[in-house]
């Protein structure tokens, strides 16, 4: 039996209204509680706190951040640090990942075995554990600054980071040991090394597997065709197989980039001053404005995730278009 169409539509609209009603009721119930709770605890509301002077220090800043800087500036410091470590890790994991992928693809039993061991080992260990291992077990057990490993009296490696010469006011300044730590030059903090290295290793295993799968997905006939055109194995790989495999590789690779970006938030666990550690950590603790701070943080991650996927989709569609013309 078929019901008249208008009855179906009316029924469907009724259900949708009920659904909206339930969602709104739940939301307003939560919001009501939240407002009452905030009132009771005397926590102020709104985004005015962003203009208040922060008054804390950040160990690594890409933009100047001093005593008079505001919470808003702290937000940007954290965001830039997040982007910085993500970009480093993406570059690193691409290089290492392609290396692993090729090693796994080649008909060489030893390189294949090595790559398989890397992928199978790294992928099955939590990222946080790897970062903890690098940070607490390796970097923290490096010698104190006064017993640093040194390379030609220019580069110093110790448990406070890697110190090397840098241009200050137009001339090179060498790091010099003063008291308990080095001054002058510049430093790569151990938190950054641990986070970037951990993300690089972890992601390289995933990218390696993707590269391998994409190379394998290319039709065998293309190898034979390239050989019959007189291309060497290397030329065939570079000119035919790799471009062809990129088509398959790109979409899942985008996902890996997104993962790196999101996983960089593990910074909070070792104290690298990223968005989560600085903003959702220190700023939240100082101001107590949990609602505003956490919603801003989540919005930023959402927005950037969205931007990355839009950019990669655009790139991907261009690639697909180019290929069609060939």
């Amino acid at each position: 039996m078929k019901r008249p169409r208008n009855v179906l539509i009316k029924q469907s609209i009724l259900w949708q209204l009920v659904f909206v009603g339930i969602v709104l009721a739940a939301a307003s119930f939560g919001l009501h509680n939240a407002l009452a709770n905030l009132e009771a605890r005397g926590i102020s509301r709104g985004f005015d706190f962003l203009n208040v002077t922060a008054g804390f220090e950040v160990v690594q800043t890409l933009i100047s951040f001093g005593e008079g800087s505001t919470y808003l500036r702290a937000f940007f410091v954290g965001l830039l640090n997040t982007v910085y470590v993500s970009v480093l890790a993406i570059i690193g994991s691409l290089i290492l990942g392609f290396l692993v992928g090729f090693a796994r693809f080649f008909a060489h039993p030893l390189s294949r075995g090595l790559a398989k061991m890397w992928i199978g080992g790294i992928r099955n260990i939590p990222l946080l554990l790897q970062i903890f291992f690098i940070y607490f077990a390796v970097l923290q057990s490096l010698p104190e600054p006064r017993d640093s490993f040194q390379f030609g009296n220019l580069i110093f490696v110790n448990n406070r980071g890697v110190f090397f010469p840098w241009i200050v006011d137009g001339e090179w300044v060498r790091p010099v040991l003063e008291g308990f730590n080095f001054v002058g030059g510049t430093v790569v903090i151990p938190e950054l090394i641990a986070l970037a290295l951990g993300l690089t290793c972890y992601t390289s295993a995933f990218i390696g597997e993707l590269v391998y799968a994409s190379l394998k997905s290319v039709d065998k006939g293309l190898w034979e065709a390239s050989r019959s055109l007189g291309l060497s194995n290397f030329q065939a790989l570079r000119l035919v197989i790799l471009p062809e495999s990129l088509k398959v590789l790109l979409p899942p690779l985008t996902n890996q980039f997104l993962n790196v970006f999101k996983n960089s938030s593990l910074a909070a666990a070792i104290g690298y001053p990223d968005l989560v550690a600085v903003f959702a950590g220190t700023v939240l603790n100082q101001t107590g404005q949990a609602m505003e701070v956490i919603s801003i943080t989540m919005m930023v991650y959402l927005l950037i995730s969205l931007l990355i996927s839009i950019a990669m989709n655009y790139f991907n569609s261009r690639l697909a278009r180019v290929r069609r013309h060939v």
Partner: peptide
């Protein structure tokens, strides 16, 4: 779209 750590926070 958001990292698990912000969800846990």
């Amino acid at each position: 779209g958001v990292p698990l750590i912000t969800v846990l926070f």
